[in-house]
Every structure is written in C-alpha cells, then in structure tokens.
Design a protein around this nucleic acid. Structure first.
Lengths: 225, 225, 225, 225
DNA sequence: AATGAATGAGCCTTCATTCAT
DNA sequence: CATGAATGAAGGCTCATTCAT
C-alpha cells in the first residue's frame, strides 16, 4: 500500500527528452523530472511541493503517494543520478600502454563523455554542482557523489602512474582534487555561466572544451610544446 | 532613527580574532560575525535569526535595529568581504620582465596571499565558495564576487601574455576559468574537506599548496621538467 | 452494488479464535476483526485505514467496498458487541428467594460471566472501556452500551430490593453507578493493566476476581463478617 | 528568546474563576486555560491550535511562542494538574487511632476534598478521566497521574490496616483498584453524566456523594448496620 | 539601543475517501 | 470484489519581520 519505490527506476536525470510532455511516462517519473528541474533551477528549499504538483497537474496528496517526503525524493534523484554519472565516466585508461599523446587523447575522451553527459543532464549537474538550499542529508549525498567522481579521476591517475605515463612522485590526491575542481568549475560555467556576463564559455562545444581541459591537465598554461 | 549601516563598517570577515568575546566590539559587528560564522557552517537558510540573537545574547528585535533584513545582512557581509579579498590578491605580476621561473614564483606568491587570506577568513570563504541555501539576490552577489576574483586571474594572465611570458594564442577566458575553478576547489577542500574521509589535503600548509598549484598551473600533470 | 451491511453479521468481537488466520472467514469479517484489534490497541484515531488494509493484505479501496466509512465500521463493531455483551450478562437473580449467601453467589456468578466474556473479547472491552480517540458519534454509541450494562446491574439491584434482600432505602441509581464503575475499572486493570507497574491484578483468575468483587459489593472493605 | 516555561507556573486547572475574562492574566495562562477547556470538551485531537488561538484572539504563531508544541502544552497541563490534585487529596488518616466511625468519617472527608477539587477543576478531571483523543505520550502522563491517585488511596488503606482498623488479610492492591475505579466512575458520572439520560446523579452534592461513597466503601451494598 | 511578545503567510505532511478500471 | 492511483481539506509548525514600550 504505497509504492514509493520505482520498479525499474526509470532514468531520471536525462532531462532533455520529452520534458514530461509525453504522458506515456508514468506519474512517478514525471514528478521526478519536474522536481529535478526545479531543484536545479530554483534550488531545493525554494522549490515547494505545490510547485511540483501544480506543474504536473495533480493534487498535493499525489506526491505523497509516490514519495515518502521531499527529502526522500531528492535523495532518490541523486542516487539515481550518481549511478548514471559514474557509469558514463567509468571507463578510464584501458590501453595497457601507449604514447603520451595517446594518454592525453584518452583523457580528452573521458572529458568528452563527461561533458556530453552533463549536457544531457544539466539539471542533475546543476543539483550536484550548485545544489543550492539543500539541507544536510541531501547535501551529504551530493558530497558523496562528487567524492565518487573524484575517485574515478584518481584511479585513472594512479593507473597512468603504474603505466609509467605520469611521474611517480605525484601527489595523487592533491592532483585529483585540482583536476576535479577544474572540471567541476568548467562544467558549472559552461552550463550555467551567467550569460549576462561576457562569458563566451557557454558557447564552446563539448569537444573543444575537452581538448582544452586535457591540454591544461597535462601541460598546464604553458601548453603542449 | 535606525543606523542599519555601519559608520565605519568595521572589518567583518576576519573571523579569528576576538570571536565576539571582547565586548569592546560593538553589537553590530558582533552580530555580523556570528551570522557569518553560522552562514558558513550551517548554510544561510538553515541559520535562523533566532540562532544569531541567542548566541549574541540579545533579543530578536535587536537584530532588526541593526539590520534591515536577513538578506541585507548577508549582502553586507559579502560586500565587505569582497573588498578585503580583492585587496588581498590585488597585486599581480609587477615586474616588467623576468624568467619563466620568476613568473611561476609570482603566481605562487599570489596563491600564498590568497590561501593566507582564506585561512584567516575561512567563514567568508565558506560563504563564498559553498554558499549553501542562499537565495537569489545573495547568490548573485556571491557570483559577482567570484567573477571579480576570476578577473584578477585573467588580468594577470593577459599581462603575462603582453610580456611574452605566455603563448599568445591562449584562450584567456577559458584558461582563467580553469585556473579559478582549480583554486576554488582546492581552497574548499583545504578548509572544509570532510576530515572524515581520507583527505590529507586539509593538513597541507598554504606554502606547499601554493607551490603545487602554481606548478600545476604552468606545467600541468606532467610537471616542471 | 455494495453490501456494506453484513448478511449475517458474523460474530465480530470474539477476538481470540481464528485471529483472521483461517481464510475461510470472509473479507468483511476479517477487516472487522483487524479494525477492532487496532482500535483497542492503538486507539481509534491512531488507527489508519491503511493500517487495517495492509494487515489484511488488501487494497485501500477494498475497505470502502465493505464499509461506508471508518465511523460506520466502528459503529457496527460496537453495536454487534453490545448485543453479545448484554446477552452474556443478561440473566440476573432468577430465584425468587434465597439467603443472603445465595444472593452474593448469584452476583458472583454474574461477575464470572462478565469477566469470562471480557477475557474472550478483550479488544471489544478495550474499545468500550478505554475507547481512546473516538469522536462524538462513536463515543455516543459506546456511552449507550455502557449505560445499557449499568441498567442490567440496576435491574438486578431493584429485583433484590423487591425480594427484600437489600435495604429498600438504597439509592439504586447511585449504587448501580458505583458498582458499574467498580467493575469497569477492575476489568480495565485486569485486561490492560500496565504490566510495567506492580500490578499483580493482571494475574488473578476471573473466578477469584469475581469473588472479591462480590464480597466488596455487599460487604465493603470491612468484608464478610 | 522564547520563554515556553512559566516563571511561576500559575494555577492552570482551576477553570471556573474569570474564565480568561480578566485580561490581567497573562497570555500563557490564558492559552493554557482555553486549551484545557477544549481538550476536556472536545477531546485533544479534535482541538485544533487554531481553535485555541481564535478563542484567545491571537495569531497562530503566538501559541508557538509560548509553547513548544501541542503535546508539550498538554503535558504541562497534566503535570500541573497532577500536583494540585495530589496536594488536594494528600492528607489521609492522620489520627493515630479512633473508632470505626472515625475512620469512615476520615474517608468521607477525603472524598469531599476530592469531589470539591473535581468540581472546581472539572476540565482537568475531564481530561484525566476521559482524556479522549490524546496520543501516547499524553496518555502515558494521564496514566501516571491516575496511578499516583490510586497510590494515595492505597497508602491510606495500608495505614488503616496498621492501625488495626481494617482486616489485615485484605488484598490491598485489588481493593485500592476497586475503590479508585468507583471514585473515578462516580466523578465522571457526576460531572459529565449525560443529562440527556435519567441521571439524577449530576444533581447530588459533593457532601452527599462522599457520604454514600464512604458508606459503600466500608459496608458495601448492605450498608451500615 | 534594546526588548520580547506578537504576527501571519506559508510549507510539509497526513489520511479518509473516491473512482475508473 | 478488488485494485491502486488520485484527491483535497486540514492541521501542526516555522520563521522573518514588526511594534509598542
């Protein structure tokens, strides 16, 4: 008597397609999408349950048939999103060897996958990267997701060191933090850069962005010489 | 009948000294400090006016004699903090020429100034970098502050290009964004890294951090060769 | 299209046997039993329809096919219980004459019947005697049932006076009230006494209890001299 | 910043005088009185905070300035009432010896004190004896209060046995339960007896009621011979 | 400057009940 | 008979803000 748990956990964060237009998708999924969008756009606290249900065209009570609470909803959104995100960036340096250029290419490819994912899941990324107004349990879940992402970068880096493609004396944790920070920041600016300001970064393609980021990652400001 | 605007706008964000202990500091400043601390620690929305006044040991109404509203308070905190922050990192590459090593050193020096400032104003940095739960007007003010910071990096970079110390074809805006992101992330982890996890980053000194960051900035992961 | 009224109004309040285990008993009866149990255990308001249907393993809507409303259900439970209760204690002083000892014995026998009934219908008694959380219409029905019980005691008393077995100047109504109160209280403590406290009353047999009560009824604290 | 605790815990349950008419009494006390009245009259669950504040002519929020929650309010009412009640019936068989008649008189005096108290605190008694719709924590507090009352009767009885005024083989616990039940029932009927029915018990004076109860207590139905 | 009582709009959540299938 | 999704009226509580003193 009360599902409150998706059977198949339909994809949530892919927010572009159908935008809860096609009513063939079920209520639960619809509410999930609307909630994610508003959480990302107006912040968690600023999003009222009534906003969500009004947009969905259902009664207030309906929300609580599908979800235990606002917080449980947010937690589910993030958990689902985390899985998708991690699986999207999951594959790192597969090749057992290669040239430096190969490695840069591999990194670039990873960035492309990540940026593409971010573009298709901008609301999820907004929630994860900006996450405004969430309270502790949700914030915690977001933190964990970002930490998991950072771990992915770190593992890649360690793998590269094993392969002798990166200097062994690297402070891996710190470098992973630097890299992760860079990527988080660039995605934030790319997707949510206030177009009011002179940001032309919002116009760049994922491909180009990935190339620049990978270049910076390996060669720094001085660039590939 | 109501000031609500500091005569001298005593320094706010320097949160270490006096910790609203010495009662020689006035009410207004005391409230400002307490509010900043709680905004940074628990988030803006999560901080109730009643929390602030209880900690200050005054009545609820007193708050509204000193400040127009919660939002005005936050805005003032950020505006004051911005000035301090920008003046702390204001001086860039002064020398008209120099070797590459000089330039790296100069960048490192900038980072040291910034990290030192951050350490002494951790609550302010928490508000600026995490700024959880703030609503739009406040978020806007934070955005502007961070944009101003990024501009500082950008100007430095442009100056370096003028001096032929960095390749001219650099996409300055993007690189500044990457750099700023990196620095923001590293400060966040350094000051607020969940010590629960295996972050050893919280233990590093500002000096060391600055050196690593500058190295990454110029040479990337491959490091100074 | 909807019965909502039992054909045969199967016994409801006899709550020990079958405990809605044997599925030979029908839905309606099952729901009735579950509801009675929970009303007695957690109170009327505290018992949600969803609790009942979950325990019965049916859908929410099913409840409303069998019963018009929660209140109608409670009213039916009480009405059914009232009939059983009154028929259980219905027979009073049949003998046209007798000694004082006979009369005490007869009263004791009545108590035994009542206590036995209570033991076998503890949920019904809980609802009638504690009836926590019920709102007016239901409370009214409970009041009437208890009043009917009190009437039974009263009639017995009047009969005893007619037979010159009790002093004629007795204030029958008041005495009946005193007696009824006593019995209600003793049943409540016997069946629902918080075993947490030092109540050893919960351990006494119906027989013993009846003897004590009858003794007190006729002889008071000073006892049978 | 929030009292929520009476300084002097002004008398609460004495509900007759001034009926929150004299506005010299403070808000908190006024709310306490109104709440008690409505709890007794309509039940706890049925009493909405909005009922209380509307009757008091204040805003909804005002309630929460004075009390932490609806439940805390009820708990406070009961705790305060318990103290008053116990102090009202506190003095038992003081005389170290005396005749049987003395003892009956003493018991009668106790009943008079109790009935007088009940009459002056009918709402409190209603809450304690009927206590409809309260949920667990409050019910627990009521249970404890009634248990404390029963203890008072029990102690009196034990004292009487020590003085050889009552037979030593008495089952004190059971008899105290019987007596307490009797008293609870009689007060309930006296104060809240549905005048709709033929209850003339509602008309009796406290004095007369006490005499009858004491007589029944010691001599049972057969009466003082 | 400060107090503290009061305000009231607003939010989350509950739950009895309905209804199309 | 039964399902389960949906409804919507409440109700408790929060908290920024106001105001008379």
């Amino acid at each position: 008597m009360q599902p409150r748990k998706a059977k198949q956990s339909k994809t949530v964060s892919n927010d572009q397609p159908a935008e809860h237009a096609g009513e063939e998708t079920d209520r639960r999924t619809q509410l999930l999408h609307i909630a994610l969008k508003r959480f990302a756009e107006q912040g968690y606290h600023q999003t009222k349950i009534s906003d969500i249900v009004v947009e969905a065209g259902v009664a207030q009570g309906t929300f609580y048939w599908h979800f235990k609470s606002k917080e449980a909803l947010a937690l589910e959104i993030i958990a689902t999103g985390r899985e998708q995100l991690l699986s999207a960036i999951g594959q790192g340096y597969r090749r057992d060897a290669g040239t430096l250029a190969d490695m840069v290419k591999a990194s670039e490819a990873l960035f492309v996958r990540l940026f593409d994912f971010a573009l298709e899941n901008r609301y999820l990324m907004g929630l994860l990267l900006i996450g405004s107004g969430v309270d502790e349990p949700v914030r915690q879940s977001i933190r964990e997701t970002r930490a998991a992402m950072e771990q992915a970068f770190r593992r890649n880096m360690e793998r590269a060191i094993e392969l002798n493609m990166l200097p062994g004396e690297l402070d891996v944790e710190l470098r992973a933090a630097l890299l992760m920070s860079m990527i988080e920041g660039v995605i934030t600016r790319w997707l949510f850069g206030s177009e009011g300001t002179h940001d032309h970064i919002t116009q760049i393609t994922a491909k180009r962005l990935a190339a620049e980021a990978a270049n910076f990652e390996f060669y720094g400001l001085l660039g590939q010489s």
